[in-house]
Amino acid sequence: MAKKIKVLAIGELAGNQLSPGTRELLGGGRDLADSLGARVGIVLLSESAGKTGAEAIAYGADEVYQAEAAFLKNYQPEVYLQVLEKIVKKVGPEILLLAQTATGRDLAPRLACRLKTALAPDCVALAIDPDSGLLRMTRPVYGGRALAVLVCKTRPQMATVRFRALKSREPDPSRPGEIKPVTPELDQSKIKSKFIEKVVEEVKGVPLENARVVACGGRGMGGAEAYALLEELAQFWGGAVGATRPACDSGWVSSARQIGLTGKIVSPNLYLAVALSGSSQHMAGCGNSKMIVAINKDPEANIFSFANYGVVGDYRRILPPLIERLKQVRKGPKD
């Protein structure tokens, strides 16, 4: 008899590909399923799936439940909920995973209610308990000051997963797997909200999530103009500029640049933390950076307990000579 689908992921598309978070769900879901000796399924809702079903298999799925319909074009919670509730109930997984994205965080709580189960949101680690076979879900709480481990008593055991918490596998185009088309049905009379439009606010420069180097400025920057220094600094590596919440709330920087618990999650090779104190809520968004370098005038600032290297001082006296020196080096070999 074929092994059962015990782990089910709800995927998201980015254009005509799987989103990076979805690939991570498949990688992490694969590990969980392997330790349970079970199969991994994924649900993909879209207007047109293209080659994403095959892509999901290459990234680790055994079965793809693929629903295509014009009404699935834009994410609309009540539409997606209706379709997903039916599919998940039919598959009956032990474990249900979503990514903690704009869509996942909106969808998962209501889906959990409809499935009469619980939800561990924004998990940073998932593991099967070797004794009980249950899913141990680890999530930061109290603004990232503490970690909680939860075990769910109802089924499915449901989690949303923070970006970069799980590892995507190398795609293997020769993996076997099955695409199962699902015909989505919609009861329009139950729809109470409607998507009207999406307004994209252009942010110039490298997207934060992909930048290898991020220069982030906090409240201590003192105003919008000072961020030009961070631009110059980041430019040396082709990096991006981020900000803490107070800097965004003050309107110095677009809120699309906010890093932290309620902003973007980044994990660059180098994180330059300038004039920010290192609150737990901020570190939730950058604590996984490979190297953190802090510049802060307060030697007691919390950021120094996260940083690998630090300079105590006023950024206004440190950044200009630092940038100057980097520029010289850049010019050097070419002359």
Binding site: L147, A148, V151, K153
Partner: peptide
């Protein structure tokens, strides 16, 4: 509660 809190701890930081 549908979920049981089995552990709550402070993350270790070695930096």
């Amino acid at each position: 509660a549908r979920c049981e809190l089995v552990d709550l701890y402070l993350p270790k930081r070695e930096t």
